[in-house]
Design a protein around this nucleic acid. Structure first.
Length: 285
DNA sequence: AGTGTCGCCTGAATGC
DNA sequence: TGCATTCAGGCGACAC
């Protein structure tokens, strides 16, 4: 389940492959994923040079040069639930696998493949100059790893929010890129109950929470993300942050913090807004 | 406006 | 063994 650290890992893996590369051809093997592929995808990519890659929230932005600088485009990729991007060193040796939906061949003879069994992913293309107005990007909240995202900023964003703090962390308008895994992990790190109404957190608590969000995301990026089922790096290798989860997918296990403090308490799984939440009912208050 | 629920989709796991 | 059901969840659409 690609969240910010997984998307960042994929983007970093794609960078040396795609930056300054020129697209030779585009093949779509079905009409779209969550939404149809842009009908003019091929003509807008063929012969064009990729200038830079960027991550925003859980999106990968592929910047594509135009004939004039005002014609630059953005190819927007979202991995959804099960999306993978694979790099292929030599496309002559490539045979499409099941669920390989979009294939870009580069001038160099290399290529990339968008593979997505559950087809919750997204591929869009629009002019760079429309970026500020694009519905998928324009209303997204602050990047959690940027210095400007502080405890004070989060505290302000949570005023009047009655939803549980766990649900608020998943809201991409409040903060970008956090998904189900890292929401549970950050709340555990901060010792805050996922059930607390978001507006009930005081400034000290939001500062602690912001620190923990940043810390868990940085550690996960360093570990190459978390591989639960589908996620892999662009070369097929796996992330290993899943081995360091404190609570996620750990129902029934003892809480390590409580054990350290000489208590016995068990990680518990609950459901919030249809999503699994894992926490320690004893030390998260 | 804020909040809650649904549907999209496949494959793995579970149940009878 | 085999078929049906359940579950996982990011995000947009929709209802209240």
């Amino acid at each position: 389940m690609p969240e910010l650290p997984e998307v960042e890992t994929v983007m970093r893996g794609l960078e040396p492959f795609l930056e300054k590369a020129v697209v030779r051809s585009v093949e779509t093997r079905r009409s779209g994923l969550r939404c149809p592929f842009p009908v003019d995808l091929s003509e807008r990519l063929n012969g064009r040079k990729i200038t830079a890659l960027e991550r925003r929230a859980k999106y990968i932005l592929v910047h594509v040069a135009g004939a004039k600088s005002s014609d630059a485009d953005i190819l927007l990729l979202h991995l959804g639930m099960s999306g993978q991007i694979k790099t292929i060193a030599d496309m002559r040796a490539y045979e499409p696998a099941k669920h390989d939906h979009l294939i870009l061949t580069l001038k160099s003879g290399a290529g990339i493949v968008f593979h997505d069994p559950r087809r919750f992913g997204m591929v869009l293309m629009f002019p760079e100059r429309e970026r500020a107005f694009h519905p998928s990007l324009c209303s997204i909240g602050p990047e959690p790893l940027e210095a400007g995202w502080t405890g004070a900023a989060l505290h302000k964003a949570l005023i009047n929010k009655k939803v549980p703090i766990k649900t608020a962390l998943l809201d991409q308008h409040i903060v970008a890129g956090i998904g189900n895994i890292y929401a549970s992990e950050a709340l555990y790190g901060a010792g805050i109950s996922p059930l607390r109404p978001a507006s009930s957190l005081d400034l000290v608590e939001t500062k602690t929470l912001v620190r923990e969000v940043k810390a868990v995301l940085r550690r996960a990026i360093k570990a190459g993300g978390s591989t639960l089922k589908d996620f892999t790096h662009v070369d097929g290798s796996l992330g290993y942050f899943q081995h360091r989860f404190a609570v996620y997918d750990g129902a029934g296990r003892p809480c390590e913090r409580c054990v350290r403090d000489g208590r016995m308490s068990t990680i518990t799984k609950i459901n919030q807004s249809g999503r699994a939440t894992y926490y320690c009912p004893h030390c998260q208050t």
